[in-house]
Design a protein around this nucleic acid. Structure first.
Lengths: 157, 157
DNA sequence: TTGCCTGCAAAGTATTTGCATAACA
DNA sequence: TGTTATGCAAATACTTTGCAGGCAA
C-alpha cells in the first residue's frame, strides 16, 4: 500500500469539505474524525475497524454515523468502496486518477495494490471483443504475500 | 453463458455422487434436486433463486438445506462460488479446468463469461513481480452488455 | 440400526432505517 | 433559527447454527 504522496490526504480532505459546502451539508466533528481516519490511512479499512479506531481515540460515534459518513465519502469521490467477498466492505482513499488492482493474501488478509498499464489497456479491449462496453473493472489476485511465504519457508526448516 | 457442453452437467453430477460416496455421505432427494438445478443451469444462480426454483417445482426444501448443499457442491469441486459484491453469493457449475472471467452488466445484472489466455498467463507474472504467490484470481469487468447498449441506442432515437 | 440429513426456528453478521434529540451555519 | 446530523435501537438481508425428528445405506 502506502501510495499516498505527502499531502494527498490533505487534498482529499479538501475535496470532501468542498463537496459538503457545495451541497450545503455541515462539516461535523464526526465527519472530520472519520475522514481523517480513512483519508490518511494506508490500508483498506472496514467499517468495524474504523469504528474501533474512533473508540480507541475515546470518541463515541454510532455505527449508523460511520456507515452514513462512509457513503458520503464515496459520493464525494474521495473514497473507494471494495468488496473482496469477505462478507464485509472495505474503504480506501481514492489515490489519484490512476486505477490499481489488488493482491489479497489468503493467509493473513493483507491487501497490497499494484497497477499495470498493459493490463489496464487490455481489459477494455477484451470487453469489446465480447460486445461489452467496459466502464470499470476489478482485478484481484489471491495467494500468499511475501511475508507469509517467508513464514512458510521458516516453518518447514 | 451457455458454456456447458452436452453431457458436462452429467459428468459433474457423477463427480458429486462419487464425492458423497467416497465420504460416506448419503445422496438424498434434496441433494439430487439441488445438484440438478445448479449443475445444469446456464446461469450464475443465487441461493434465493435456487430455493424459488425448488418451490416452483412443488418441492419443499428448507433454506438451511439449500446453503448446506451448496457448500457440499463447492467442496466436491463441481460448483464455483462467486461474490460480485451484490450482497449475496452466486453459484455456477464448474466448467472444466479452464478458468474464466466475468462481464457484469450494471444495467440488467446479466453475467457473461469470457476467458483469454494472454490474460491468464499475465496475472501470475504480475503477482510475481510483486513477490506475491498467485493462487487464483478474479477479473470482473463492469459495464453494459450488448442488449443494454442496443436498448440505449433505441431510446435515443 | 446408526449416522447423517432435514426442516424449522433462532442466532449471527454486516448494514440500513426511524425517530427524538443535538449540533452546525 | 432552521436544517441536517447524530445516537440509539429496531429492522433488514443473507447466511449459519441448534435441535428434534426422519431418511439413507
Amino acid at each position: 500500500m502506502a501510495h499516498l504522496a505527502r499531502g494527498e490526504g490533505d487534498a482529499l480532505l479538501d475535496r470532501f469539505r468542498r463537496h459538503l459546502r457545495d451541497h450545503r451539508l455541515p462539516f461535523t466533528r464526526q465527519r472530520a474524525l472519520l475522514a481523517e481516519i480513512v483519508l490518511f490511512s494506508e490500508e483498506h479499512l472496514s467499517a468495524e475497524v474504523i469504528a474501533r479506531k474512533l473508540a480507541d481515540k475515546g470518541e463515541r460515534v454510532g455505527t449508523a454515523t460511520v456507515y452514513r459518513t462512509l457513503d458520503l465519502l464515496v459520493l464525494s469521490g474521495v473514497v473507494r468502496l471494495h468488496d473482496f467477498g469477505e462478507g464485509f466492505r472495505r474503504y480506501e482513499p481514492m489515490a489519484g486518477p490512476a486505477d490499481h488492482e489488488h493482491l489479497v493474501c489468503l493467509r493473513c488478509g493483507a491487501v497490497e495494490e499494484f497497477s499495470n498499464d498493459r493490463l489496464a489497456r487490455m481489459l477494455p479491449v477484451l470487453a469489446d471483443e465480447h460486445h461489452f462496453q467496459h466502464q470499470r473493472h476489478r482485478v484481484e489476485i489471491f495467494g500468499l504475500c511475501h511475508a507469509c511465504q517467508q513464514r512458510d519457508l521458516k516453518g518447514l526448516r
